[in-house]
Each structure stands twice: as C-alpha cells, then as structure tokens.
C-alpha cells in the first residue's frame, strides 16, 4: 500500500520559495496568479500485512517528516495500480 504525504509550511508562515516562484510566474505574464505554495511529498510504501497504516503514517509524520513549529501535512492513500 502506498501513501502520499504532503508537507507544507503552515498558512501563517511566510513561504519564501513560493513567493519567489510567484514573482517568476508574474514575470511570465500570468498576473492572475495570486499565490504559490511550495511543499514536499513523500511516497511511503507499506508491506501489505501492515496492520494500521494510517496510525503509522501519523506517527511518521509527527516524529520525523513534519516540524510542527512551522509545517503541517495532509496525506492520501494511493490507488493500487
């Protein structure tokens, strides 16, 4: 089973990469773009017999992937191909 975990800065935290990219998008002429958020995603693959995948995802995010001082996360279980 594969889970995709998205990590971004909290909305209240200034995202310098997002701002820089937004400026570049404006330079391309797309003035209608009002915001860009940059984040990271992690595709985490679990062995099929893993008991509680969602609990594991939360523990991994809490303890390693996310710094809750400044970041937040969401995740989605990927469709099996």
């Amino acid at each position: 089973m594969k889970v995709r975990i998205f990590v971004t800065y909290k909305q209240s935290v200034f995202d310098p990469q997002g701002e820089t990219i937004k400026d570049a998008i404006h330079a391309l002429g797309h003035q209608g773009v009002t915001g860009v958020t940059v984040g990271k995603f992690f595709d985490v693959t679990f062995a099929p017999e893993t008991a509680d995948v969602e609990a594991a995802v939360q523990a991994i995010a809490d303890q390693l992937l996310v710094n809750f001082n400044m970041e937040t996360y969401t995740y989605q279980v990927m469709e099996e191909k």
Partner: peptide, 17 residues
Amino acid sequence: LTEAGLLPGALKKNDSQ
C-alpha cells in the same frame, strides 16, 4: 537543537531565498 526539542522554534529558509 531546535529539531531535537532542546530549544523552541524552528529555522526556516532565508526570506531572500
């Protein structure tokens, strides 16, 4: 030290990039 929880807060990317 911040990541280890020994100091509060966090260090993020410089505003200037």
